[in-house]
Amino acid sequence: MTWHDRMKDGRGRLSATVLLAALAAAAPALADTPVQVAAPPGAAACSGCHGPAALGSAIPSLENHAAADIAVQMQAFRNGERSATVMGRIARGFTEEETRAIAEWLARPEAERHAQP
């Protein structure tokens, strides 16, 4: 039985508030390293296609895009307003809330966005 199954059994489940308190308490130990922000669900996969601008790829780089801009484009892909090859099929797999979280993470400087839990 894995850790995840145990969590589903309800044993050892942490409420969000308690977990946040625990994380806050642990934070000072990380103070000497750059602040990193957890990749929200799905966000780490984007770089499989969208690379640094310096690559000169036909697939647009997401560097230097504001979060609001990315979220609006994803919305347009999702509802078909913007035509696409694969992005419509991918955007429909995420809720508006998930999309916003991904967009905000992608808009952060690279040093802050590693796939940390």
Binding site: P41, A45, G48, P117
Partner: peptide
């Protein structure tokens, strides 16, 4: 991300994954 969470005694987040 899950391995790091487990090593830090945190709950791993529910992932979403993409394939193309």
């Amino acid at each position: 991300a899950a391995v790091a969470a487990l090593l830090r005694e945190r709950e791993p987040a529910q992932p979403k994954l993409i394939n193309t």
